[in-house]
Amino acid sequence: MTPAMIQLSADGRLQHFLTIEGLQRKHLIEILDTAETLSGVAERRVKKVPTLHGKTVVNLFFENSTRTRTTFELAAKRLSADVLNVNIATSSTNKGETLLDTIRNIEAMQVDMFVVRHAVSGAAEFIARHVAPHIAVLNAGDGRHAHPTQAMLDMMTIRRHKGEFANLRVAIVGDVLHSRVARSNIHALNVLGTGEVRIVGPKTLLPADAEGLGVHVYHDLAHGLRDVDVVIMLRLQRERMSGALLPSAAEYFQQYGLTEERLALAAPDAIVLHPGPINRGVEMDSAVVDGPRAVILEQVTNGIAVRMAVMSIVLGNRAHPQEDFA
């Protein structure tokens, strides 16, 4: 079964949002354009539009994340939806309830959308396959697999600064192996026709056969950064800083930390992204984080618009299944 099949309706419209893989350029452009339109909502005196009035969105978080959950919550509320936050990391699955039972229970509360975060790769897709057909599933991060709204907010940020993707060189730096952000970004950049996508990191933090993902692989940061227009830094989990993957946070910073000197190797107007939360002095030097090239806070702002866009597109497609998809 191709990845597109479950998240797309028979006529090719987004029914769930689980992964970038298998989507077409038109899907991503629709999300980006809608997000641009919706980003104006935040500037209004009343920061709300009635798009999802009467709809109920459930944030189903099997893994703790205040930040991502908050932006999804804000996005849903700005669309006038009712929002229910369910933190399962600390509740029922620990009591032995299966994932499907949990889903069935919340499904019975007559809700319209699940925003799912789960520590296991494939969880959102699994839920989408088993949930009642009227419920849309948005993947807010599953294991190492995908974090498609993060990728779209990164694309929105890049597009705002750089315009077209075709001429861009983009480097994704750090722990690609464990990163759902990296996987989704690689797919999104490739779907949007990015000139060159690089990943940079030590072999211990890159997946086997990484070239198969459609990237050029670099182990040397200086080489990897040369002439790139966009640098996407990845978060390094604290528990991975010292052990068999890496000797120490200090050595990691020395080899792969982004400093102003290293950033100077990139194109003169290169921008720097990071999905947050940042470990200052590990992934990036504070001077870069706080410097003019970092667009990290814009990412956060764009994240709300992108999530509003995805929610309204997916529920809109379900409300008007007969309309033609341009």
Binding site: S121, G143, H145, A146, R183, P207, A208, D209, A210
Partner: peptide, 18 residues
């Protein structure tokens, strides 16, 4: 480990078994 440490595991984000 969940899958062969190759292209499919890399794509799906599964823990590889080399």
């Amino acid at each position: 480990g969940q899958a062969h440490d190759g292209q499919v595991a890399a794509r799906l984000g599964l823990v590889g078994i080399p």
